[in-house]
Design a protein around this nucleic acid. Sequence first.
DNA 1: AACGCGATTGTGAACGCTAACAAGAGGTAT
DNA 2: ATACCTCTTGTTAGCGTTCACAATCGCGTT
Lengths: 345, 345
Amino acid sequence: MQADSTARRPPVMEDVARLAGVSHQTVSRVLNKHPHVSVQTRERVEKAIADLGYRRNTAARSLVTRRSQTIGVLGSGMSEYGPANVLLGVQQAARHKGYSVSMASLSNVTPAAIRDALEHFMLQSVDGIVVIVPHEAMFRSLRTIRIAVPLVAVGFGVDEGLSIAAVDQRMGASLAVQHLVDLGHTAIAHVSGPPDWIDAAARIDGWRHTLVEAGLPATSLIRGDWSAESGYRAGLELAVGRTATALFAANDQMALGALRAFDEAGLRVPEDISVVGYDDQPEAAYFVPPLTTVNQGFKELGGRCMQMLLSEMASESNPGGGGSSAASVVNPVLVVRSSTARPRE
Amino acid sequence: MQADSTARRPPVMEDVARLAGVSHQTVSRVLNKHPHVSVQTRERVEKAIADLGYRRNTAARSLVTRRSQTIGVLGSGMSEYGPANVLLGVQQAARHKGYSVSMASLSNVTPAAIRDALEHFMLQSVDGIVVIVPHEAMFRSLRTIRIAVPLVAVGFGVDEGLSIAAVDQRMGASLAVQHLVDLGHTAIAHVSGPPDWIDAAARIDGWRHTLVEAGLPATSLIRGDWSAESGYRAGLELAVGRTATALFAANDQMALGALRAFDEAGLRVPEDISVVGYDDQPEAAYFVPPLTTVNQGFKELGGRCMQMLLSEMASESNPGGGGSSAASVVNPVLVVRSSTARPRE
DNA sequence: AACGCGATTGTGAACGCTAACAAGAGGTAT
DNA sequence: ATACCTCTTGTTAGCGTTCACAATCGCGTT
């Protein structure tokens, strides 16, 4: 089963040029939309391109231009709702602008793995990098390793010397906790994510801050790890102690685990205890009971992020525009469902 | 603000060669692990590479070798548990083998969008393509569009003329339904995914087949769309009719929706009605009650898929190995939790 | 009538790498 | 001593683009 003789090499610029009766350079000009090409020439070239089914060779192009039209996305926990959607947003924005997206996802966030992945991106000579790993270790690595291309991080704290696009997590947490305070709760517990995750830390902060503002104690903090299981354990703990009348979980999955624990312990939600989640993943509306939670515009975040990256990439190629560090913050929104209510007297 | 003179271009092979006192070709040989290079030379070259921080230019390399060391992954619904994990598996396997992964995810599966994405991959001249869109439209497009590179599809039916890696969905559905049959249920409903999804069709098939085998009616089929909301609606419907004592949902999210509907309607699970899900996402163990479901080795599937692609890519470069269409099937496993029980007399 | 200037096209040289061939060194078989 | 391998290295020629520069044409100015 030999390949038939039609299987010769794909056409190159020279082939197009010959067919159109011009030089290869003119073809290049048409492709790159240079001004000074006469209308007739352009049309002839375009016809030749279509007839031959010509496609510009990316490798040759990026060899000479020194840009790959590719951006790298470094992520972890990409199967979770939040990161997956940010990725989606980045990805769509990127392809819309003609960029390819190369993915690397870390199964565990260690400095070595981070360096590896970044190294991989440099080898590929990506034009820019998006980091979706709001993790303490990542942050430190980013300071240490000097990267030669523009980089935007998603979800990092605003105060650092790198460009970020983030949801205001402290505000989100405040929204959640204030809602509980307004309902009349005075003992509000928090199941957090792993505190070396920047998001988790910010939510803890927002929780604590809001309670202190309201003159309430912020003592009931339980560490989780984002998983439903850890939420379940936290819920069990709370059910035994009976110290809190409300729980703010740092994500919807932990809230789900807690819901299950309360059910098992015979506590009714929201009558005996109120629960607020975080993320507003689509399933949250179908928990038992439907979960009050905080919506973050993940996909929009991804889009913004890409936008920032593009503008950094543009300013990098112009002299005198280097080293800027911008920030773009998306505001979260509280979604009230039936897992929260006034505490019983 | 001029760039300082240190910011000269990155080192190239010639620089390494000069430092090591050899020709650039010898450097190339070291990099490509050719045999016939003396140990001392190799070491000298390696030292020079390290000293200079030299990195091989991928564009130049792929220009001459005509391979990009990149594979394209075409997906849709990437924020769902299943697809996201397959992607993860593919991605890890690919990077392990030195390939980059370029992603394109379709927000809606139309022939035009599919063609666009594949075109994008061809422009990038990927070495192979993985398709994670088990959708009828995708399947048809794949037959129509002639693609110049090896392609592996995830989750398609086994009988087609293209390479696939799939979980045996019919078997999975059988596992679920047989479990219910064994418990003594005779009226077993099914909430399916959209039937133009190949997975959904296979699960419907497995459900029907198993019931027929057992001499039971397979009449209670409700169409869902994978979302928790559609599961909720199906659950409501079932709760009103009171026709079924068990429900097999085509994924965990729809099962969640149904659980909520039953709770709302005052039906207890599993006492009044049993529920089985599909996917075994981590949260399923923390539903109320914990969900009996079918585990699919998504990540393994991704890995296998990549393996198949690699072997196709290898056989393609050798003459006489073309056009094979293999299949690799992963077996699903039933996970029994407490959402299923014997029906009441 | 010579000059200049913008618009349009072509020519040659990179870009950084690998493949193909050539060539020298050293050993063994004839 | 000659021929003929194998090991090791170097030389040269692309791969398919874009960039810098040159060349030609037409037209308005001086």
